[in-house]
Computed example of a mutant assay.
Amino acid sequence: MKLSGNTIFITGGGSGIGRGLAEALHKLGNQVIISGRRKGHLEATTKANPGMQSVELNVEDPASIAAVAQKLIADYPALNVLINNAGIMQIDNAAGVIEEDLLTSTVTTNLLGPIRMTSALIEHFKKQESAAVINVSSVLGFVPLAMSAVYSSTKAALHSYTLSLRYTLGGSSVKVLEIAPPWVQTDLLNSNEEPRAMPLAPFIAEAIKVLGTDSDEVVVEQAVMLRNNPGPGEGTFVKQFNDMMTQPQ
Rank of each mutant, 00 (worst) to 15 (best):
M52A: 07
V32R: 01
I134K: 05
A44F: 07
A197F: 06
F125A: 03
S173T: 15
G235N: 15
A86P: 04
K71I: 03
P230T: 13
A207Y: 02
N242I: 08
H124L: 10
T186S: 06
A67K: 12
V238M: 12
I83D: 04
R116I: 06
Q128R: 12
V139E: 11
K126A: 09
V136Y: 04
I208K: 02
P248L: 06
D61E: 06
A24P: 12
N30Q: 08
S152G: 01
Q90M: 01
A132K: 05
A157P: 01
L121Q: 04
G141M: 09
Q90F: 04
I91H: 05
P114Y: 10
T168E: 14
R116Y: 05
A149M: 03
L79K: 02
S215L: 13
G231D: 05
E178V: 10
I10S: 00
I122H: 08
S160T: 14
E56S: 11
F142E: 13
I17M: 01
G235D: 15
P144A: 14
L79I: 13
G16A: 13
G14S: 10
L169R: 12
A205H: 07
Q128P: 05
I8E: 02
Q31T: 14
P230V: 13
S152N: 01
P195T: 05
A94K: 04
L111Y: 13
A48E: 06
N135V: 02
E221S: 13
E100M: 11
T186P: 06
V107L: 13
N85Q: 12
P230H: 11
K27P: 02
P199C: 03
I17V: 09
L188K: 08
S130L: 15
N93W: 00
G12K: 11
A120L: 04
N192L: 14
L145S: 12
P50W: 03
E217Y: 15
S148C: 09
W183D: 15
A207W: 02
T46P: 00
R166C: 08
I10V: 14
G87A: 15
N228S: 15
V224N: 12
I10P: 02
A69V: 09
I208N: 03
A95Q: 09
M117I: 08
M1Q: 10
S172P: 00
R19I: 08
I134W: 01
E23N: 11
G5H: 12
H124D: 08
Q128F: 06
T108M: 12
A180S: 07
R19Y: 05
Q249C: 03
G29W: 05
K239G: 00
D75Q: 15
S35R: 03
S215M: 13
S54M: 14
G96K: 09
V55P: 01
E178A: 12
I33F: 02
G233H: 00
Q31C: 07
I204P: 00
H159D: 14
A131N: 07
Q185L: 13
A24Y: 11
M245R: 14
V143H: 04
G20R: 04
G16Y: 06
G29E: 05
Q53M: 12
M1S: 14
Q70M: 10
L21S: 10
L3F: 07
M225E: 13
S153H: 04
G14K: 10
I17F: 00
P144D: 13
L188F: 08
A48Q: 10
H159S: 10
P195W: 04
F9W: 11
I91K: 03
A132H: 01
T154I: 05
K2P: 11
I88E: 08
R37S: 03
D214T: 14
D61I: 00
N84T: 02
